[in-house]
Amino acid sequence: MLKLENLEISFATSRGNLHAVKGVSLEIAAGESIGIVGESGSGKTVLSRASMGLLAPTATRTGTVVFDGQEISSLPREQVRDTWGTGMAMIFQDPMTALNPVRRVGSQIMEGLTVRLGLSKEDARKRAIELLGRVRIPDPEQALKKFPGQLSGGMRQRVMIAIALACNPKLLFADEPTTALDVTVQAQILQLLSELRKELNMSMVLVTHDLGVVAGHTDKIAVMYAGEVVEYASTKDLFARMRMPYTEALMKSIPRLSTPSGSRLPVIEGRLPDPTKPEPGCLFASRCPYAQEKCRTQHPDLTTDSNGHQYRCFFPLGGAQ
């Protein structure tokens, strides 16, 4: 369905060249669901937007993106656009800012239907009501007439899902779809996404900083750190035999239900390396409790073990196999 090969993305900034994504290769099969996990600043959002081609013109991208058998990374923007909405769709992080505040919910859902699918206004309306029912919005007819400001955060996120699903995309990117929501609403939205994915037989890329979010909802997980994939395995395998010290650290920072919502997560000590300054060794070395001399001087490559479990570490947890 989607195949990324050696994807590199950098931005020209006033402080120099910001290398946001470094040589990422991933593959997502039809109907499959993959989680991309990492701290903010790890390049996961940039990666998902770049896969779609949604980046600002200040970004430079190399490597290839193949969607549905078509190499879209070499196509002009106008042609890539034809896959948006109908082929690939995206759910954004913050439902407060990602819906246009001055347009009614109905017109924002119907827009894709009339423009991209060529539906008549009446048909689009029917479909919009159906979609709102699908994402479990009570009284869809009324909801159509509302402005985003009149809905709660959870309702807005449901509206955004309805918009993304409107044109039956084959692949759905969900960029931190629950971060801005309350804990109880988070679970509902994730459950809804999972059910809809199975119902519609979509592929899904779930981007999050929270390993707990991807645990029950994905087939595979890619962990990203400082623009690189540092661990890549099936969800089962990853949780059973974690290899990367970074993934372990992330695991410890999962919020429990006992932590009050809105409080800061227990963060990993130290900071992400400056993305404008390349470093010689392992990028996680300065924060890694197991780091040794070798880690600070040599950059580890992505290693694949016998189970197809990939990791980027000289001294993986559980020892090398």
């Binding site: 937007r49 779609m52 949604l54 656009r81 034809d82 896959t83 948006w84 909405g85 109908t86 769709a89 995206m90 954004f92 992080q93 913050d94 800012t97 990602a98 819906l99 246009n100 505040p101 347009r103 827009e111 894709g112 423009v115 991209r116 955004m160 918009i163 993304a164 409107a166 044109c167």
Partner: peptide, 22 residues
């Protein structure tokens, strides 16, 4: 620079339509 503009783009709308409508 608003999110909802990127959101509108991700629906596959033309730049002209995004500019006027959104």
């Amino acid at each position: 620079k608003e999110d909802y503009v990127t959101m509108a783009a991700s629906k596959g709308l033309s730049d002209r339509r995004i500019l006027w409508r959104h």
